[in-house]
Each structure stands twice: as structure tokens, then as C-alpha cells.
Design a protein around this nucleic acid. Structure first.
Lengths: 201, 201
DNA sequence: CGTTTCTTTGAATCCGGTCAAGGTCCGTGG
DNA sequence: CCACGGACCTTGACCGGATTCAAAGAAACG
């Protein structure tokens, strides 16, 4: 199968919660998300968990370079992934070029996100973290009402907060009339300006 | 001038505190540190500062890809830098190859460090942050006694802590007999095991 | 030496974490 | 269709670690 970036690979389906690749496993593939949502996670020996990033359709993931995956990747809901072999003797000429270009672009994007994320993690309050996060999610989703494909635990491990704090901040944003939730996974922004003001530049 | 990686550029000297490149300025060069120490920093509109990374001789920096520098870089002490033009028509064949290989290696290293750093920022206590940091510094410096080329403020902005907290944690490590300071910029590790135990896996 | 900048230390405060209880959502099976 | 069970989410009370504010001490520099 070939996709919109001209990458050649195999389409695979994953069930909610299913592992796409494991931490420390050989990095034989890179992945392009076709449909659904994915999170990457890393475990410390003492059980602390870090969510590296959330991925949406079109995103490349699993390219933390080196010969091992430094993060595991899991499907958040049912999803479809294009698995692209990293080393493929049959890939030559223009094909090879496209592949290398895509991996380069993906890696620099990854680096930029990581740097933004560092900023968010190090020097911001809980409310700023949650507000920034919601703003990012709305940016992805261009529908009227945005969806959170991940649990509160995932959000917490991404933002460096506990689930209780995440929940409290969401509650506060709603109480202040800035966002409105319809069930815990769907919301819409009522005061975009106010939300942006809370989020970090 | 050509260096050990085969990179071609111009050697420049910078005075303590001098800016090597500015945030948001066109990224015309990449830099290789020859001698001294460098920090990269990023400013938020409200004045909050983030130190991205510290660099030592041999390191490449300034390659946060895109056409603008996302971080500024400043000399921590007197230092010497090889400035390598990013776009150079005269660079062909093996030269071009070496350049691209070096930039690729530098970028993936950068990504890995950023990912480690995220882990450190998000889910660890002040004492763990400081202990991890000292351990990293000692790893660089293979001398008996290690040197901190940066201020407490720099360490704080790197670790997401206030200078007071950094100072307190250093004091605690010394009081516990784990490290020993000779002036605030020089220290040696007295109990390596204890320090590693405090640092994050 | 005097001045400035950086660092240390102390006391009080506050934000986010911890612990605990209750609520909601959803799939399963009676 | 409703009852049950489990996973996830919310809310409250209390606690503790890091920040804040303030002042004194050390180091760097001209």
C-alpha cells in the first residue's frame, strides 16, 4: 500500500488499548497514522509513566531514532496504521528519497513538539497546562465540538499532573464558562479568548 | 576551517554572556562548540525563561530545524565556536554528505535529550532533578572535581525550579555527605551510589 | 576596597498531591 | 428492560513540597 506521502507499507488495524510497538523493542518500522488516535508512553523503573505525545491522522510516529523504540505506542481507540519498514533493500531512487524526506520532516516536527512540551512542563501552572492542552486539541479537531480520545490519566501523564488535578482544572474551566463539556470526552469552547489567555504563549 | 567531523566553517570567539544567535533570528548557521560551554534559552512573552540545553565541546547546536532559531544561544564563559553555513552552494559531494550526516546525528541527539528532559521535568521531585543534573555534569567532566559553568538561575530555568530551591537541594546533598562543594561552581561526588539512587532511571 | 551580582538561608504561604468517598458511564447478563 | 459490576471520573479535606518574600552572606569585578 502506498499513501499520500508516497510511503510504502502495510495497513494494520489495532483495537482500543492495543500496543502498536513496545518500549525498547527493535525499531524496524516507522508508523503513519491513517485513522484514529495514538499515544506514545515511556515507563520508568519505579512505575512512573510519561506520555510522550498524542498522534492524529497523517502523523508519523515511532521515529525516535536509534535502533530501539524509546517509547511504546498504543491505540487510544480503534485505529488504522500504515507500517513502513525502516530498512528496505527494494526501496531505491525516488522512493528512497520520499522516505528519507518524510522521516526527516517527522523527526524535526517531533523535536519541535518536544521543545514546546518542555516549556509547558517546566514553568507553568496546572490551569495553564490544561488550558494549553485543550487549545491544542481544538486546533486539531476543526469540528464545533472537540473530542478527547484519551483518558484523564493519559492527560495527566502528558502534562505532569495527577488525574485529580486534571479533573479539577477542567471543572474550573467549565465553572468559569470558558468551556462546556457534554460527557467527559466531548467539549466545546465558549470563550476562545479567555482560553488563549490562560494558555502559554 | 575544517573540524574533526569534516565540517567547514569559520572559527569565532565569544565573551562570557555574549549571544551567539538570537531567538527568532534566521537560522543561517549551525554551530559546533570547540571550547567552552553554551546554553540555549527561550523566552516567553511574560518573561518566563526556559533553558533548552547546555552544550560542551564537540556538541552541535542551533539546529532546531525550521528557518528560524527557536532558541537563542549564549556563551556561558569565554568560548570558541565553529560557525557552519547551513546553505552553501560550494558544498558538494563528500562534503555535502558529511554535513548532512552531522546535522542528522545532531538532530536525533537533540531529540533524545529533549525526551529525557521531558521525563525529568514532568514527574520528579526537586532533589531528583538536581541529583540527575549533577550526575550528568560529572559524566561530561571526567576530572576528579567537576565544574558548573552556569549560574543557579540557569540550572533553575533548566530544571523548572527556582534558584532558592536549587540552592537548598545542593545544600542538602552536601549536608548529607553525597557531594562536596569548593565554592559554588566546583564540586566532587563523595557517594556516587547515593547520588545515582536519587537520580531518575 | 567598594560595588554589584550571585548565592544561601529563613519564615510564611500556596498550589498541587494524597487519601478517601461518591458518582457516572457502559457493557454484560439475568 | 433492568440490575449488576467494573472502569473511569469527580469532589472534598488535609497535607507537604516548592515557591515567595525577605535579608544576610559570598564571590566577582573594576
Amino acid at each position: 500500500m502506498s499513501d499520500s506521502l508516497g510511503l510504502v507499507g502495510v495497513r494494520m488495524h489495532f483495537a482500543p488499548g492495543e500496543e502498536i510497538c513496545a518500549q525498547d523493542e527493535d525499531a524496524d518500522y516507522v508508523y503513519r497514522l491513517i485513522d484514529g488516535a495514538v499515544r506514545t508512553t515511556r515507563l520508568l523503573s519505579d512505575g512512573r509513566r510519561q506520555v510522550g505525545e498524542f498522534y492524529y491522522p497523517g502523523d508519523l510516529f515511532g521515529l525516535e531514532s536509534g535502533d530501539r523504540h524509546r517509547f511504546s505506542a498504543e491505540a487510544l481507540g480503534a485505529c488504522e496504521v500504515l507500517m513502513v519498514k525502516r530498512v528496505s533493500p527494494s526501496r531505491t531512487g525516488a522512493d528512497r528519497d520520499r522516505f528519507e524526506r518524510a522521516v526527516w520532516a517527522g523527526t524535526t516536527t517531533e523535536l519541535q513538539r518536544a521543545q514546546e512540551h518542555m516549556m509547558l512542563l517546566s514553568r507553568t501552572t496546572a490551569i495553564e497546562k490544561v488550558a494549553s492542552f485543550l487549545l491544542h486539541v481544538v486546533g486539531r479537531d476543526r469540528a464545533e465540538t472537540a473530542t478527547l480520545p484519551m483518558t484523564r490519566q493519559d492527560m495527566g501523564d502528558y502534562l505532569g499532573l495527577t488525574i485529580e488535578t486534571v479533573s479539577r482544572m477542567l471543572g474550573r474551566l467549565q465553572a468559569d464558562g470558558i468551556v462546556e463539556f457534554a460527557g467527559c470526552r466531548h467539549f466545546r469552547v465558549r470563550q476562545h479568548i479567555a482560553l488563549s489567555r490562560l494558555a502559554v504563549a
